[in-house]
């Protein structure tokens, strides 16, 4: 702080506090709503303090009392989301770290071509090639399967770039030393490069896990079988019930449950998260 201005400092804290309140308010309300019986919500204005139905509502949401709300049990959807998010995160990291290794440490014909083909994926988000991608997945018989949920999303130019940039900063002497000691390419990759990339992998994993967990459009398209619904798209099914008022207390309980894993990852691994966020945008 450069000068001492107590009033201005107080204003600073007030603004930040208001910011935190605005950010947290929707979540608080969702939590409050998820602790009331359904009659408590439709009969007028929502109270601002939690009710006493916490265990009942979350219990029935998790284990299947949400069929009336139009979706499978939340526990099942959370497992599906978890499988999809982990598959996307590990898959992306695995295939991009080996392709970055090949592009940096080898000189082979079509190296630059391969790099450009990977690069192009940056410009083709799922949203702009929805129909044809759906057709491909349908023709491969991958609808309603974990493979169909994860595999089409695991190509990643960003991760390949990140690893390429990192590998370029690894000193050549390490490779020379490894070669003198008789290590081959795979040995060098496994024993030297991979341990050196640990922080980068972890940071990327945090970002990709959130990316995978929050997928919406893709699971919506490729799943028609309720047992493959993910939680983020399942909420939409609950909101869009035809001809009746949505069961808000269960929807909000589901929303809270859908937020817990990614928010936990961000808060618990804040440093890795920030690192990953900054680096994937470079």
């Amino acid at each position: 702080m450069i000068e001492n201005r107590p009033i201005f400092t107080a204003v600073t804290h007030v603004v930040l506090f208001l910011g935190v309140l605005v950010v947290a308010f929707p979540i608080w309300l969702a939590f409050v709503a998820s602790t009331y019986p359904v009659e408590g919500l439709v009969s007028g204005v929502l109270p601002l303090w939690p009710g006493d139905q916490f265990w009942e509502n979350y219990g029935s949401a998790l284990t299947g009392g949400v069929e009336a709300a139009g979706s499978p049990p939340v526990l099942l959807m959370m497992v599906n989301s978890m499988v999809m998010a982990l598959a996307i995160a590990t898959g992306k990291i695995a295939i991009s770290i080996i392709s970055a290794f090949a592009i940096v440490y080898f000189n082979f014909p079509f190296r630059v071509t391969a790099f450009w083909i990977i690069f192009i994926t940056l410009m083709l988000p799922v949203e702009v090639r929805i129909l044809p991608t759906y057709e491909v997945v349908a023709n491969l018989g991958m609808l309603d399967s974990y493979a169909g949920l994860a595999v089409p999303l695991i190509a990643s130019a960003t991760a390949t770039f990140l690893f390429r940039q990192f590998f370029l900063t690894v000193p050549d002497e390490l490779l020379e030393a490894a070669r003198i000691d008789g290590a081959g390419a795979l040995r060098f990759f496994w024993d030297i490069l991979l341990p050196l990339s640990r922080t980068n992998i972890a940071a990327l994993f945090v970002i990709l896990f959130i990316f995978g967990w929050n997928q919406y459009l893709w699971p919506l398209l490729v799943t028609t079988d309720e047992s493959y619904y993910t939680i983020v798209m399942g909420i939409q099914r609950m909101v869009a019930v035809p001809d009746s008022e949505p069961l808000w207390h269960l929807i909000m309980a589901t929303a809270i449950l859908a937020m817990i894993p990614p928010v936990f990852v961000v808060v618990a691994m804040q440093r890795l998260f920030v690192k990953g966020l900054v680096e994937t945008e470079k």
Binding site: N214, V232, I235, A255, A258, M259, P262, V263
Partner: peptide, 15 residues
Amino acid sequence: LIWPYAVAPAVAGVL
């Protein structure tokens, strides 16, 4: 202030 990044757009919309 940073944790809403982790909330899925669809969930944010529903809230």
